[in-house]
Design a protein around this nucleic acid. Structure first.
Lengths: 152, 152
DNA sequence: CTGAAGTCTGCCACCATTGGAGGGTCAAGG
DNA sequence: CCTTGACCCTCCAATGGTGGCAGACTTCAG
């Protein structure tokens, strides 16, 4: 508070343990592109800049980026992550609120898996019955064309 | 060939068993929007028009739309469908070519399922250990924040 | 001083689909 | 004839998350 906020020259910032965007990206596993993007959409605070307008990150920012990265890896959507970040930073949160977000995502994942498994089942059935040779006859195309098992 | 191609007035077209886009959409299960889109990207031929510039579809077009619809339901990408449609319409195709497209898609689906299952496993583990009550302590946030089982 | 590597902003592309704006057309009924 | 409502038309934009490129500037090492 007392000290001026905008000291900030690149070399000096690095010396003081701060990171430029490249280092922050490497340290968090998020691409430089996405680091900027997350800032643009308000997932990450607007970070400080050097005189040359370079972004300057603290280790705290890197933690946030890692949090985002991990959440993305678990398939959370950006808006979910926005909420999770808010909960993370809110020390009077309830774990129920967190569990609710995770639970909804979990259900969505399961729903999608069921859907894809159904596709897989159908496709495996069809490919199993497809000769896969030089001849044109193909149950896969028959199915797509709407032929429903002529024998059944 | 002999007869002029562009008779085409709306009422007459309908009488002759042709369909306007709304009917074609309903008959195929594809939305009106997407019917136009599929034409725009060359998945469906450029259909004829009435004098008033309304699109006119044949039952053949409806079959194609159903084919596309079914393929999308099975998760095929547009470019895959483009290829499948070409194979469908090519009577000297080899079933092997069809099987190859389906097989690649199948593998991709399986890959995604494995990926999502891994997410589900992690999330279920975490939510299982989350109290989900008024207290702030939450293993889900701990995981996202990078805390790796302090006990282990 | 020069060159390479890093950073800045801004814009476009992907994929499939939906939505809207702003207009024309068709059919039914007054 | 005129209105009304349900169609249809085209064009444009947005979604979500990421990558890529262009043109300009900065930094740092040789």
């Amino acid at each position: 508070m007392g000290k001026t906020d905008a000291f900030l020259e690149h070399a000096e910032a690095i010396e003081r343990g701060l990171l430029d965007i490249g280092r922050a990206a490497k340290a968090s596993g998020v691409s430089v592109k996405m680091v900027r993007h997350y800032e643009a959409i308000g997932l990450l605070r607007k970070v400080a800049r050097t005189y040359a307008n370079y972004r300057v990150y603290t280790m705290n920012d890197v933690h946030t980026l890692r949090f985002i990265k991990r959440a993305r890896t678990l398939g959370f959507a950006i808006d979910d992550i926005r909420e999770l970040l808010a909960l993370w930073q809110n020390k009077s949160r309830s774990s129920a609120a967190v569990k609710k977000v995770a639970g909804a995502h979990l259900e969505e994942l399961k729903r999608k898996i069921v859907e894809m498994k159904s596709m897989v089942a159908t496709l495996e059935h069809l490919t199993h019955h497809c000769h896969g040779d030089h001849r044109p006859d193909c149950p896969i195309l028959d199915d797509l064309a709407g032929a429903r098992k002529p024998g059944a």
